[in-house]
């Protein structure tokens, strides 16, 4: 009898503590969402107030409402520009993902290749893209192709360095297990090294997706317009020359919103891919 009451008491306790846990979690979620929103509201209000208080002209510092107005007024220009930049960065990103992963697998499958080529990949990475962009324009013409290539070049390296690290960080015991069953090099790669590298690969892709956008916009600064229609980067240069500052802000903010969206998309793809096993993807469950 006594032991029974003890257990019911204990289960009550457990239930209660799980309720408080839930409350705590809900409170945490509220905190993590509410906090940034409050910060944003304060930021926007200050931004709105300062030009009014100090009588700053819109072409120096436009108010949020000016920016919104400019976006609405010039939507027929802004929307095509967004579409172009989005297309360029997504293509650039996909190429950097495919080429990056492909090259990593190639390098990782041969020690000699890796040792002799990886240093050059690092050196290539340290060359600022702005410096090689003109050459790319000379080779591939101004416009879409060059911009995609620049976006690819910027996004490429994080994929390679992360994937390579993953492919080379296989647990020793797991490697031994495969050796014990006389696994071929090919089996080691596809059944062990690539799956083990997945989390690394995904974090490389998360970095490179935002870089691909930076690449596309930078590319548009330099490779400008090709075929008559420019993206956000081109729109920004034009707006700057014409002192259409509110529109310039609208373009920049559109780029940022796309960047966030793209990052969230890639993150959720990565979470889906890693769902079955990776710990950082499991935190949600805990």
């Amino acid at each position: 009898m006594t032991s029974q009451t003890a257990t019911t008491n204990r289960s009550k306790l457990v239930v209660e503590s799980s309720i408080t846990d839930k409350k705590k979690i809900r409170g945490k979620v509220k905190g993590t969402i509410l906090g940034p929103i409050i910060a944003l509201v304060i930021f926007l209000s200050l931004w709105q107030a300062i030009p009014i208080l100090f009588d700053i002209k819109p072409f120096i510092l436009p108010k949020p409402t000016d920016v919104l107005q400019a976006a609405i007024d010039d939507w027929h220009l802004l929307w095509p520009a967004i579409q172009i930049t989005v297309t360029e960065s997504i293509i650039g990103f996909i190429i950097s993902a495919i080429v990056g992963i492909g090259i990593s697998i190639l390098l990782a499958s041969s020690r000699i290749l890796e040792v002799s080529l990886y240093p050059y990949a690092v050196i290539l990475q340290t060359i600022p893209v702005v410096a090689i962009a003109p050459i790319i324009v000379i080779w591939f013409g101004s416009g879409f192709n060059s911009i995609v290539i620049i976006s690819f070049l910027i996004g490429f390296f994080p994929v390679v360095s992360n994937t390579l690290m993953g492919l080379n960080s296989v647990d020793k015991n797991m490697g031994d297990l495969f050796t014990l069953y006389n696994a071929s090099k090919w089996q080691m790669m596809w059944k062990l090294r690539i799956p083990a590298a997945m989390p690394y690969m995904m974090s490389g892709l998360k970095i490179s997706c935002t870089l691909a956008i930076v690449g596309a916009i930078t590319g548009e600064f330099i490779a400008g317009i090709g075929g008559g229609r420019g993206g956000l980067g081109y729109a920004i240069t034009v707006a700057a020359v014409q002192l259409k500052t509110p529109y310039l802000f609208a373009c920049a903010i559109a780029g940022a919103i796309f960047g966030i969206g793209f990052y969230l998309l890639v993150s959720s793809i990565s979470r889906f891919v890693l769902k079955s096993w990776h710990e950082s993807a499991m935190k949600v469950e805990k």
Partner: peptide, 28 residues
């Protein structure tokens, strides 16, 4: 002829129980 049970269980985290057990046969 030889099988090895490692000091920690050494299972592949991305494979299900069945697929882990199948692995040696798959490799062979």
């Amino acid at each position: 002829d030889i099988a090895y049970v490692f000091q920690d269980s050494n299972l592949l985290p991305w494979r299900t129980v069945l697929d882990n057990v199948v692995l040696p046969l798959e490799l062979r």
